[in-house]
Simulated assay, not measured.
Amino acid sequence: MTSADGTPAVTAVIGVGVMGEALVSGLVRAGRPPATMLLGEKRPERAAELRERYGIAVVDNVEAAAGAQTVVLVVKPQDMSEVLEEVAGSIRPGQLVVSLAAGITTAFLESRLPDGVAVVRVMPNTPALVDQGMLTISPGRHCEEEHLAEVEALLASTGKVLRLPEKHQDAATAISGSGPGYVFFVVESMIEAGVHLGLPRGTATELVVQTLVGSAAMLAETGDHPVVLREQVTSPAGTTAAALRELEIHGVRAAFLAALRAAHDRSRSLAEGS
């Protein structure tokens, strides 16, 4: 995206915590010039750290919003109303506002910004920290193809980007947004099981992590349904079959369905409570 005079457009990132910095570092690694970015950060110590690390100008939120064509809000859902109130007077039609806050709808954003401002809702996840994120994006009422393309270009440095109707964003939040937490929980449980079976913790960790990496690679590279891959490793009356029987007896599948429904419903309630 370029500005009206043909110069590179400026992108402001407001909220440079873990996810915000993941985006900034990804953009820098992808070759985005620091001069085309602004960071909004209030804490002096953190601002100095970011300037030193990335060579990007760090200003207050209002100045960041006023000086950019694309404004990326990477704040907690409960803080979104306050941040929008702070920067709304500096936002103008023609700018693009991108939100990475769980549960915050495009309608919520549009109702607190000047009429006609294009907004895009994004649901990221933490593997973006290692450039392996899964990010879903949904357009607001005033969003055009060029806005979606700009957001895709911004986020591509941190992982895979998928366009999604906004009605599915709460489900995406439950699956991919919160998903790493479930995976880490399963990994933690498998490591503990290994320790209980007599393995040193370091050995159990290495076995579990590499098994996870390899299994994920098989899913991604073969394109086979997980049922097919599971059946390939499940011999009749074998060790895997014995383990899976215990998981079914303990209702693990039903527990996952209930857990993801809870995450979905919580995502939906976040905007209502903002």
Rank of each mutant, 00 (worst) to 15 (best):
S3H: 15
A4G: 15
A4C: 11
G6T: 14
T7Y: 11
T7L: 14
P8S: 11
P8F: 08
A9E: 14
V10I: 15
V10Q: 09
A12N: 06
V13I: 15
V13W: 01
I14A: 08
I14D: 04
G15W: 01
G15V: 09
G15A: 11
G15T: 07
G17V: 06
V18Y: 07
M19K: 12
G20S: 10
G20R: 04
E21N: 06
E21I: 04
A22M: 07
A22L: 07
L23T: 10
L23V: 14
L23G: 10
S25I: 03
G26A: 07
G26Y: 03
G26Q: 06
L27R: 08
L27A: 06
L27C: 03
V28P: 13
V28F: 10
R29P: 00
A30M: 10
G31W: 11
G31K: 11
G31T: 10
R32Q: 13
R32E: 01
P34S: 13
P34I: 13
A35F: 05
A35P: 02
T36Q: 13
M37T: 06
L38V: 04
L39T: 02
G40N: 04
E41Y: 02
E41Q: 15
K42P: 03
R43K: 09
R43T: 07
P44M: 11
E45Q: 15
E45M: 08
R46M: 06
R46P: 02
A47P: 03
A47G: 10
A47R: 00
A48R: 14
E52L: 08
E52D: 14
E52T: 13
E52F: 00
G55I: 11
A57N: 07
A57R: 12
